[in-house]
């Protein structure tokens, strides 16, 4: 099984620790994982802004970088969802279609493909799970509160394997944090208010670390927390699951 590691552009630039944790975790689990060095961005920032017609270059580059792998794994539900729904190519549509079916967000790769049942690791902290919308409602990493359906949570299933980790319930289990791509600057006031409200929910419920399978949400909430001078921290789920995080 050859796995291509797809690292979103902003993770590559600002949160290399989460990408390293993803890589190390997959390696520890015996996966043959490689990072194609010519990757840039999935094209989602343009597409969600209405400029999907400009993403052709990103699409071709993505196909060039990732076609050869059996699976493509990424520590971001949002970027994976974009590839799954919007990767297309006039030149290489068969390859694009194949990629759309073999791209996985890290958590679902661990639970659905590797089907892991235990992880060694300890994280003796109170943790709040932020359900990033694209991972949750798009990739269905966990059940959505709007639906009348059996509950499940893939991130929680994994976090429950970590010793000492206590998951804190939230008042609003799956409300959007307001990042929303370019929404975070185009609709600054609402975006920040949504972020503040999400953060307040975690604080109210005694959370020490907010974790998520998407760093974009965490970057947004971290920005608010640091401006507020809050001791609450954000951490990507890979860094908890990898067990060797340095926080």
């Amino acid at each position: 099984m050859k796995v291509g590691l797809f690292v979103p552009c902003y993770v590559d630039q600002f949160y290399p620790g989460a990408a390293i944790a993803t890589l190390e975790l997959l390696e520890k689990l015996g996966v043959d994982v490689q990072y194609p060095s010519r990757q840039t961005c999935c094209g989602q920032p343009m597409a969600n802004s209405g400029f999907e017609h400009l993403t052709g270059g990103c699409n071709e580059l993505f196909i060039e970088n990732f076609s050869a792998f059996d699976y493509i794994v990424c520590p971001s539900g949002s970027c994976v969802l974009h590839i799954k729904h919007h990767l297309q190519s006039d030149k290489n549509e068969a390859k694009a279609a194949a990629i759309r079916n073999k791209v996985y967000e890290l958590v679902e790769f661990l639970t659905d493909v590797l089907k892991i049942t235990n992880l060694k690791g300890s994280f003796p902290h109170k943790v709040g799970i932020h359900q990033s919308c694209h991972g949750q409602r798009g990739l269905q990493l966990s059940q959505m509160t709007e639906l009348v359906a059996p509950s499940f949570s893939k991130p929680r299933y994994l976090l429950d394997m970590i010793a000492g980790l206590e998951i804190m319930p939230l008042d609003r289990a799956d409300e959007c944090c307001g990042f929303g791509g370019t929404f975070c600057v185009a609709e600054e006031a609402v975006s920040v208010k949504m972020g503040k409200d999400r953060v307040a929910d975690h604080i109210r419920n005694g959370v020490e670390y907010i974790t998520a399978a998407d760093l974009s949400c965490l970057m947004h909430m971290e920005g608010i927390l640091r401006r507020q001078g809050s001791p609450l921290k954000v951490i990507h789920i890979a860094e908890i699951l990898n067990g060797e995080c340095t926080v």
Binding site: S49, C133, H134, M144, E175, G178, G180, E187
Partner: peptide
């Protein structure tokens, strides 16, 4: 259409 984070909660309800 830009006044949204595309969170998808609307579709679910």
């Amino acid at each position: 259409p830009f006044a949204s984070t595309l969170c998808g909660s609307c579709t679910n309800v």
